[in-house]
Amino acid sequence: MSETKATAFFARFRSLLALALMVLALSLLSDRFLTADNGWNILRQISVNLCLSIGMTLVILSGGIDLSVGAILALSGALAAGLLKTGIEIPGTDILLQVTPSGAILNGLAAGAAAGWINGFAITRFKLPPFVATLGMFSIARGLTMLWTGGFPITGLGDAFGRLGTGAFLGMPTPVWIMLALTGVFIVVTKRTRFGRHLYAVGGNVRAARLTGLNVSRITIAVYSLAGALAGVAGLIVTARLDSAQPNAGLGYELDSIAAVVIGGTSLSGGRGSVAGTVLGCLIIGVLNNGLFLLNVSPFWQQVIKGVVILLAVALDKANARNRDS
C-alpha cells in the first residue's frame, strides 16, 4: 500500500468524517435538519458555490488564484437577463434583435469564458501575478455589470429561462443536475485527461513542466477561461432562480469558493488537491450554513464560525503535510 494513497485516503476520509459528524450533530439538534426538503435545499444552495469552486479548484491546482469569479458571475447573469428582456439594438439602426433563452444562456457563458480568457492572457502574456490580474478583472466586470444594468435589477425573465434555476427533472432540481454533471465532467477532466495531468504538473512545478515541453501559457489560459465559463454557469443559475439579475449578485462569492477549495484539501501552493475534495468542502460549508440557520444562530456568529472552520481545516491539513514530510 503506497503511503501517499493512504494519506490521501485519510485526508479525504477526514473531511468526510467531519461532514458526517456535522450531519449527525445537526440532526440531533434540529428536527428540521434531516428531511428530504432540507436536503434538496442544501444541494440547491451549494450548486452555485460548487460551480464557482470547481473553476477555482482548477485555478488553484495550477498554482494561481481567481478573485474575479463573483464579479464574472454577476456580469454573465446580467448580460443574459438583459439580452432576454430587451434584446439588443444594432448600433446606428433601429433594428432590435430578440434573443431566445438559449441564445441568452450562450451569451452569458461566452461572456464568462471571455473574461476568464482575458485573465489568463494577462497572466501569461504580461506576466502579471494572478492575484493582480484577477483583481483587475474583478473591478472591470463589476463596472461593466453596473454599466449594463444601470444599477437596477433586471427582472421578469420568463418561464423558459427560469427553469434553469427553479425547474426539476425526475424529481431533482435543475441546478443540482447541472452541479452533478459538472462535478462528474471535471473529475474526469482533472484525473483522466492529458490536460488534467498537465494542470497538476504546472501547479506542482512550473519550471519542470516547461522543461518537459508543456505549453504552460496555453494551459494557464485554458484554466482561467474554464473558471470564467463556470462562473458564467453560476451566474445563469442565480439569475434564473431569482428571476432577476441583481447588479450586486455574487458579492464575496470568490472568497466562499476559495474557502470551499481549501477546506476540500487543495493546496494553495498548487499541484495538490482534487475536485472531489472541493465537493466535500462545498458540502461542509453548505451544511454548516444551513444548520446554523436552522439553529437560529445569528448571521454574525455564522460568519465567525465559518472563519474558524476554515482556519481549523487548513491548520489540520498543514499538520498532516508536516507529518508526512519529516
Binding site: 501517499t4 492529458r194 495531468r197 498537465h198 497538476y200 504538473a201 506542482g204 512545478n205 519550471r207 519542470a208 513542466a209 522543461l211 518537459t212 515541453g213 508543456l214 493546496s267 499541484g271 495538490r272
Partner: peptide, 21 residues
C-alpha cells in the same frame, strides 16, 4: 527538485509526463 520533477506527483505521473500520448 527545482527543474526536473513535479514533487507532489507520483512516480508514474512524473515518468509519463513527457509522453502522455
Amino acid at each position: 527538485k527545482r527543474d526536473g520533477l513535479v514533487l507532489p506527483m507520483s512516480v508514474a505521473a512524473n515518468a509519463s509526463l513527457a509522453s502522455l500520448q
